[in-house]
């Protein structure tokens, strides 16, 4: 079984993101970039399936600037077998990503696509579902557990109010939630080895996909802020003030 894992290079989750003063976007110069945490979980899930003998090859793919090679090398250092970089400096919306991934999936013929449920930059939560729809493969979103057996995947999905377990026939698209696993850190020898693992370079044009945005970002602004309030001395005072000043209790 082959697993295709799309990964995205994003602003590191520990970075306190600043909006540019002119409203043109967020500050990205000299900001630490990392693999989207949800995608790290996907890479880890794929590795565990391979270690359990369920998968034979893990192919990672990223769509983004030349620097996204770093993200792919991280995935290779974690243990993925080879990488595909679809290089572009354009802002790519989830729909265009899904179209490129569809072409990649048609060429690579994976049995399973595993990707993060959302990227922590645009918080869209769309790509996996879009890819599933375009391929006509079933989807299992927001997975907190995946079992592979008899040509299908049993996926436990985190949903409002609890969880739902679904069975989907392979090939399928599964999007991962953070509780699925805790991703490993690549070891130094593996980081060295990853530099020699195969990485194929493509462009969106190779797949006949135009990346022109459908959404025009007019403005990016700071959210309306909150200020620190008062420190109260006791639980008693808290109750009195909440009651008198806010009417919430």
């Amino acid at each position: 079984m082959r697993i295709l894992v799309p990964v995205k290079r994003v602003v590191d989750y520990n970075v306190n993101v600043r909006v540019k003063a002119d409203g043109s976007g967020v500050e990205l110069t000299n900001v630490k970039m990392s693999m989207n945490p949800f995608d790290e979980v996907s890479v880890e899930a794929a590795l565990r399936l391979k270690e359990a003998g369920k998968a034979s090859e893990i192919v990672v793919v990223s769509i983004g600037p030349a620097k996204a090679e770093d993200t792919l090398r991280t995935a290779l250092a974690m243990g993925a077998d080879r990488a595909i970089l679809v290089e572009t400096d354009d802002t790519i919306e989830p729909l265009a990503v899904a179209k490129i991934l569809k072409s990649v999936a048609e060429a690579e013929k994976p049995d399973l696509v595993l990707t993060g449920k959302q990227a922590i930059d645009d918080d869209s939560n769309q790509t996996g579902q879009m890819l599933s729809a375009l391929l006509g493969w079933p989807q299992g979103t927001f997975a907190s557990d995946i079992e592979i057996a008899d040509g299908s995947a049993v996926v436990v999905r985190e949903v409002d109010g609890g969880s739902r377990t679904i069975r989907i026939a392979l090939p399928a698209v599964v999007t991962t939630d953070l509780r699925l696993n805790e991703p490993r850190y690549p070891s130094l020898p593996n980081i060295m080895k990853a530099k020699k693992k195969p990485l194929e370079r493509r462009t969106p044009g190779d797949f006949g996909v135009t990346t022109e945005p459908r959404l025009i970002v007019m403005k990016t602004e700071e959210p309306s802020g909150r200020k620190a309030g008062v420190i109260v001395a006791s639980a008693q005072e808290l109750v009195q003030r909440l009651s008198a000043e806010t009417g919430t209790i």
Binding site: V11, N16, V17, V19, V26, I120, D121, D122, D123, P213, R214, L215, I216, V217, M218, K219, T220, E221, E222, P223
Partner: peptide
């Protein structure tokens, strides 16, 4: 976007 640290105004075409 960015976990609510920025707010985008977007226009659909």
């Amino acid at each position: 976007v960015y976990a609510g640290n920025a707010v985008q105004t977007v226009r659909s075409t």
